[in-house]
Simulated assay, not measured.
Amino acid sequence: MRRRRFVAGTAGAVAGLALGPGPVRASAPALRAAQWQAVPAPGSTPAAQLRRISAAGPQLAWAVGEEGRAGPSQGRALAMHWNGSAWSKSDLTHLNYTGRLSDVACVGSAAAWSVGLPAGEASPLLRWEGATWREVTFPGRGEADVGLESVAVGGDGRVWICGRRGGAARLLRREGDQWRWLAPLPVASASLYRVVLRTPNEVWVGGDQASGGGWSGLVARWDGAWTVLPPITGARLSISGLHAAATDDVWAVGTEAGVGGPPGRPGNPVLVHWNGAAWSQVQPGFSVGSLTGIAADAQGRAAWISGWNYQDQSRSTYLRRDGQGWAVVRGPAGTATAPYLSDVTPVPGTAGFWSAGMTSPTPAPPTAAYSERFDA
């Protein structure tokens, strides 16, 4: 069952966690030397949003999401391509799919994979091979209870997808040309939203699980068998991004939706750290909004977190690793009404990063696709 929503709850602490390492502080002058810059992403039909972004290098990146959204209804699949100088919209009209694309992963300079939310009874698996996107057959394709949520590709070429089948959260793996669903995650009523790789044989997933009348944050590891970390407790809390530098050094971000209040109210950003024994909470530097993704630097250390600060929407908001703590960094001014970032990713071979999202926090016209770039 999918529970995560865009909006969340009132300001409050994440329950059940110890005080975390390194408080977040305002950005220091040294962090202002290199800045985020807005990069136009034209061509999509409002309302449009980019949900995930992946780069193969300075000359190639993909971002996916949806366009043409009207009210609560899903829009059409959107895929945008960076060629080193500009974004352009990729043609998807030949595909038998109209829903939102939820994730993308580049594979070198010639290929990419993308997955999407179910539209009708189909959750698509797409592959780019240099000329066009095409649908790929996999076990369970077209089944009513199958959903694909996030995709990652290892250096060995294996493709990992988190989703659901048979009423359970699972991983779908591709080795060579063979697809295989792995053992179900041993957690009832779990939803997975992100899959990341630490090594070719160590896969991490994040999402949420049923807890009382709501849900709590979920992080688990697959290395041939499942290891489920203790729940990240809170009032309707979901994990949307994570980074594992080691089995005892894991960062996770998300949103705590809270309880009660009007629909559409903002929630509480969540930033937690796993030290191998327990989760600890880190105050993210603002109390109302969300944290959405984590990107690592070239040394594999968590470096940037994308977010949205409800109390200061004039610019995009990031957290940047600063020694043992995190520093709040603001994006460019005056480039969007109130930009909302959904993801952040490194640019391989450089010290740069991309982020992606939309020009306002509400996916309704005239909201458009939006991206920013950090060139160190």
Rank of each mutant, 00 (worst) to 15 (best):
R134S: 14
N83K: 09
T98R: 12
Y97E: 03
V136P: 02
R134M: 07
A110N: 12
L95D: 04
P124R: 02
G116K: 01
A77N: 07
E121W: 02
A112R: 08
G75W: 00
W82Q: 06
V104H: 05
A131G: 07
F138M: 13
A111F: 11
P72Y: 02
G147Q: 14
A131M: 04
A110G: 09
L95R: 07
S114R: 06
H81D: 07
D91A: 11
S88F: 01
H81Q: 13
A144H: 13
V136M: 12
E135T: 14
A77P: 10
D145I: 07
A122V: 14
V104K: 05
D91W: 02
Q74K: 04
S102D: 11
A79M: 12
G75P: 01
V104Y: 04
L117I: 00
H94E: 14
K89F: 00
P124Q: 08
A122T: 13
K89W: 00
W87Y: 10
R127P: 02
V107C: 13
P124S: 08
R100G: 00
A77T: 05
E143A: 15
P124Y: 01
Q74A: 11
Q74C: 01
E143M: 14
V104D: 07
G142C: 12
D103W: 03
S102A: 12
W113V: 08
T137F: 06
R141W: 09
T137G: 11
A79V: 10
P118H: 04
G99L: 00
E135V: 08
L92H: 04
T98A: 14
D103Q: 03
A86P: 02
G75S: 02
E121F: 03
C106Q: 12
S73D: 10
T132K: 14
T93I: 01
E135S: 15
N83M: 10
N96D: 15
H81E: 12
R141F: 11
E129F: 07
G75Y: 00
S102Y: 01
N96P: 06
L117P: 00
L126M: 15
G116V: 00
R127D: 04
R127M: 07
H81R: 15
A144M: 11
S73E: 06
S114V: 06
T93H: 09
Y97S: 06
